[in-house]
């Protein structure tokens, strides 16, 4: 069931209520075009200009949660979002772990949380923020862009939401049928920005290293080839600073 609100604090906070209203056992989604208190990972703020962008949270009940395969689900859903957006411009890529970018500028961000308990049932709560029709991205800590900036066309936000939901539903159904399918990883790796190109990255200790992104492994760790060795980094243990292949 799809819910819409003209404005709200964070769709991620409200979508569990929508899911309960929809019966609790079925997928639900809440979308808004004006999110005032959007949040990213660990409650970092996510800014969106009113009326121009899409903020949506999707509630997907997990019939048989298998945490060891959650990274593959993450990859599948990230690729699904990319494919939905790729119908507009065609060369969007993934920046690990789940930012969608175009020519090095951020176009969309994803956040996923598994909520609920074993007794009442767990669900994946997935937040998506898409820069759709905003054109001004000054004073941001990282380069950003929008579908409008890329394509020169204004996008219908409701149509965009429907397209994303269709792609997510297909990917989620495929994962439920075969949660260990490494095709999710292969698709993800094929769409990773700057794969086999040179990146500058900062490790948790503050060390700046340069190397190649080889892809991610089935656990979602970034495989980074630097100084004649391959290291597997968890998210948070390394920050990709610059794609040195970008001009």
């Amino acid at each position: 069931m799809l819910f819409y609100t003209p404005s709200c604090g964070s769709t991620q906070d409200l979508v569990p209520l929508c899911a309960r209203q929809a019966g609790g056992k079925h997928p639900a989604a809440l979308l808004t075009f004006h999110q005032t208190q959007g949040r990213g990972q660990q409650n970092r703020p996510w800014e969106a200009e009113p009326g121009k962008n899409l903020a949506m949270s999707v509630w997907l009940p997990l019939k048989n949660p298998k945490p060891e395969f959650f990274p593959l689900l993450n990859m599948g859903l990230t690729v699904a979002c990319l494919k939905a957006l790729n119908q507009h411009p065609s060369d969007i890529q993934i920046k690990w772990p789940n930012d969608l970018r175009h020519n090095g500028a951020k176009l969309a961000g994803l956040l996923m949380e598994v909520q609920g308990d074993t007794q009442s049932g767990k669900a994946l709560c997935m937040g998506i923020g898409v820069n759709a029709n905003q054109t001004n991205f000054e004073n941001l800590p990282q380069p950003a862009t929008s579908l409008l900036n890329i394509s020169g066309q204004t996008h219908n936000l409701m149509d965009l939401a429907r397209s994303i939901l269709n792609h997510l539903q297909n990917a989620f159904t495929a994962w439920e049928k075969q949660p260990d399918d490494v095709m999710f990883m292969q698709d993800y790796n094929n769409l990773t920005e700057g794969k086999n190109g040179l990146w500058e990255a900062e490790t948790q200790t503050g060390q700046i290293i340069t190397g190649e992104i080889l892809g991610v492994d089935p656990q979602g760790r970034l495989l980074f080839h630097s100084d004649n060795r391959v290291q597997a980094f968890h998210h948070g243990m390394i920050r990709l600073k610059r794609n040195l292949s970008n001009k």
Binding site: Q41, P71, N98, T118, G220
Partner: peptide, 18 residues
Amino acid sequence: SGKVVCIIEAMKLFNEIE
């Protein structure tokens, strides 16, 4: 039993552990 004791995160997917 069932109380959340921590979160394990992979690729920005946050999984509550009971």
